[in-house]
């Protein structure tokens, strides 16, 4: 694999990495040590398949943004290499839409003028179609009405939307979104989620970093979890959840009886902690378990199937502590 050089303007004629050419992002041993010794990303091996919606998770300060900066050629890796869309970075970047660490625009320009400015910076974007594309991008994030307003006067959510619009100028094969729903109202959050799904449906790979686990679980097909610069897990959402099994939870005053019944039904790992009994559901149908409990005279106050959540995985892997990484 060739090292993607730091200079975005004049990269070496890097051949695609030896890995699967279908991967949108591949990194090998990607490391960033900031001046002062802070290791923000430590030997990261990440693979983002094309066409996936990839959730990039991790506590504050775990190195998500630093990784994204390296992938966009903003920060030079200390060691390791990476490839984006299997081509030299300068050629790949025009096909990549990016939102890095929140919106940043010229406060004295209107939203539309701001987008035109960034469009002008892209050497592959045609000036003739700029206005149409800017209009479409604004339309897509619902900012058409505020297109002529100065950025200075935008609300937090409007700013975030404008940043997403900037990432959507022109046809993209990869969208890198660093916390896209930051500062959005519930409506906006839903819209972004819908937008991401819509974009992904067109075949665009979406690489999205977030803290909102529920959101990632809803949007993403894949996820990776970072902790203090290290990758602790990656794979499909399902494979990540797969480490934990679905359980059934019975709420009852007769905990001992219930445990006996569940045991009799052949459920594994029955745990009794009054007024609750839980067990692995295995392949059994919950309604039959309920019927069996009732038949045995156990007073069932509540019965629930507990699916493993990403949050459980996340907390399991990154710990319960509240302290930031770093």
């Amino acid at each position: 694999m060739t090292v993607v050089t730091h200079e975005a303007g004049a990269p070496s004629g890097a051949a695609p990495p030896s890995g699967d050419p279908g991967d949108a992002i591949v990194t090998h041993g990607l490391t960033k040590r900031f001046r002062g010794g802070q290791v923000a990303v430590d030997a990261l091996d990440l693979t983002v398949p094309r066409g996936s919606v990839f959730g990039f998770l991790g506590p504050n300060g775990s190195g998500k943004t630093t990784t994204i900066r390296m992938l966009l050629g903003l920060v030079a890796p200390t060691a390791g290499d990476y490839s984006v869309l299997g081509m030299p970075l300068a050629r790949a970047l025009p096909r990549v839409g990016a939102l890095v660490e929140g919106p940043a625009f010229y406060p004295y320009l209107s939203g539309e003028a701001n987008l035109l400015r960034f469009d002008a910076a892209d050497p592959t974007a045609a000036g003739a179609t700029a206005r149409t594309r800017v209009g479409e991008a604004l339309e897509r994030v619902g900012l058409s009405a505020a297109a002529g307003k100065r950025f200075r006067n935008y609300s937090l959510g409007m700013r975030q939307r404008l940043a997403i619009a900037a990432a959507l100028l022109g046809p993209r094969e990869l969208l890198v979104l660093d916390e896209p729903t930051n500062g959005l109202d519930p409506q906006g959050t839903r819209e972004v989620r819908a937008l991401v799904k819509e974009i992904a449906a067109d075949g665009t790979t979406v690489f999205v970093s977030s803290h909102l686990l529920a959101e990632v679980e809803q949007m993403c097909t894949h996820a990776a979890i970072m902790r203090t610069g290290n990758l602790v897990a990656q794979g499909t959402i399902a494979s990540l959840n797969g480490g934990l099994t679905t359980r059934i939870r019975v709420e009852t005053p007769d905990a001992a009886d219930a445990a006996r019944v569940l045991d009799a039904l052949g459920l594994a790992d029955v745990r009794s902690a009054a007024p609750e009994v839980t067990a692995e559901l295995g392949g059994q149908a919950p309604e039959e378990i309920n019927a069996a409990l009732v038949r045995e005279g156990v007073a069932v106050r509540g019965l629930a199937v507990v699916r493993p959540s990403l949050e459980d995985v996340f907390v399991g892997l990154t710990g319960e502590g509240f302290d930031v990484d770093g």
Binding site: G9, R69, L74, L93, D122, P123
Partner: peptide, 9 residues
């Protein structure tokens, strides 16, 4: 960062 990611080069 957005100019360079555009990529302005």
């Amino acid at each position: 960062r957005y100019l360079l990611a555009a990529p302005a080069g």
